[in-house]
Every structure is written in C-alpha cells, then in structure tokens.
Amino acid sequence: MQKKVIYEIKSLYRDDFQVMGYEFGSGENSVCIVGNTRGNEIQQIYVCSQLVKRLKAMEEEGKISEGHKILVIPSINPYSVNIQKRFWTTDNTDINRMFPGYHLGETTQRIAAGVFEEIKDYRYGMQFTSFYMPGKFTPHVRMMKTGFEDIELAKKFGMPYIILRNTRPYDTTTLNYNWQIWETNAFSIYTTSTNSIDTASEKMAIRSVLTFMNKEGIVEYQGHDGYISSVVDDRDMISVRTKMSGIFEEIVGVGDEVEKGQPLANIINPYEGEIVETLEAPADSIVFFAHDEPITYANTAVYKLIVKKA
C-alpha cells in the first residue's frame, strides 16, 4: 500500500487541506474509487476506509493481479467533514459540481482540477455518493444515460438494482459525467445511508466492488456473487409525495415490500397530534427510497417505489 497526497492547499489557520490516496498494486491505472465530496457523506468515507483495510490485506496475500493499480481516495473533502458542513467551508460551493475543474480558478475548481488530473486516466471509476434529499436507499449502481454507459458491465457488481436516469444540466459538472467524457467507465454507487453508518450496505458495497474487480481480473476474490441486478429506469419509479407539511411518522422503511393501498407513513400536525395525511402505496411495489428526517415539507417525494411486474 502506497499512501500519497493527491492534492494539497495551504491554509492560513487550519492544518493543510490534503486529499489522501491509497494505491494498491502496480501497472495500468485500472480502478479508482472515490468516497465523499460533501461534508455529510460519512458512510461514503466509512465504506472506503473498510475497502482500504481489505485491499491492504489482499495485497499482502498477493491477491492484487499483476499489472493492475487500484487507487482509493476516501475523502476529497475532509475540511467540510471536520466542520460538519455539507458544502465547501467558505463559499458553500459543491466540489461535485466543479468537475473537470480549472487549475487557475476558484478554490473548489482547483481542488476538482487537481484531483481529476490524478484520476481521469483510470479504466474504471467508482464513486460512493449521496442524493440531494435526505433518505435511505436500497443499495444500487446509478448510471446516467450519457451514451457511454455500459449496463452489462454494471451488472458485474451484483448489486440489487441498476438505476438509469437522464442527464440534467448540472450533471455536466459532476465527477461521474466527466469521468465518462474522459472515457472512464464510471459508476455511482449508493449504499443505504449518508450521515449515519450502515454496516449491512457497507458490506454489500465492499463485496460488490471486489466481485466486480474479480470478474475483470484485477483482484482475486471469491465471495458471494451477489444479485442478478434488476435494471430500472428512474422515470419508471413511482414517487409518493406529501400533500401536507408536518411531522413524518414512518410506517414502512427502505427495502420493504408493500401492497397497493398499504399505509406507508403518516403526517402529523405538530401542535395537535392529529394525523393530517396518510400516504398509501399506489401499487404493489418495493420501497426503493424512504425519507428519514423527522419533519417533511409539502410536495416532497418521501418514498420512491419500484412497481412489481404483474
């Protein structure tokens, strides 16, 4: 294992801002794995830390294949984590909206450029990331329909789902999109949680990444092959939205199977305690995403459901 500084900025009063990378094996740039870009993506750092620990042991056992290099960057943004702020410490910009970056630009553009320079030539890119809304996910691989996406390759992770979605204007500045433009096969991997630790999905993620690398001949790993992934277009999922704001009382959680008409959650009047709304499943389905905050706003998609095929 080689530990190296991927990018560094001197600070006036804080310790130096450093992006640390962990390299395993040597040879072609085969796989780059990135953890958090935002300060609340703690699960994403945790997954990477467990992967570093695992790869270190595998390297010592000679299980990294000859001619392959794996780079793990657990955190592109330790500064924001340390002050528990989601975006960049001073100007609140999002590093994952700054790619491919600009080395003469603003601070977060420079960080993006400095990191991207080091990671853009990898064959496979994997990013542990999070959703802009608070909630828990069924673990999945998410791909944008850029024209470069390779679904058959994504199936090698053996995650329960592969979600495809259309690109939006802001996507052009994400790491995933730019990796694809630079001809890296890029995957966004979602585990269950973001700012809390979920060990079950962390273990699934580690197993999935190792399974993928084993199938591509990059590591030697024998584990459970995982799932035959279901491929779902994001547009085919049903969003269940609140009509009312209030206290959110969950009845079913992520991964649960529900029948049409089954109650999913209640919205409670915060002063009088009455149930003002009960959300119901519009079809027989599986809960793919579930809101996990104690309050909710009106019009919020608090559940995303994958409809069961008849």
Binding site: P270, Y271, T296
Partner: peptide, 8 residues
Amino acid sequence: ASVGLPVG
C-alpha cells in the same frame, strides 16, 4: 405562491 411549512 404559498406552501405550508412543517410547524405553524
């Protein structure tokens, strides 16, 4: 435009 917020 108006939207009710969670608490009063």
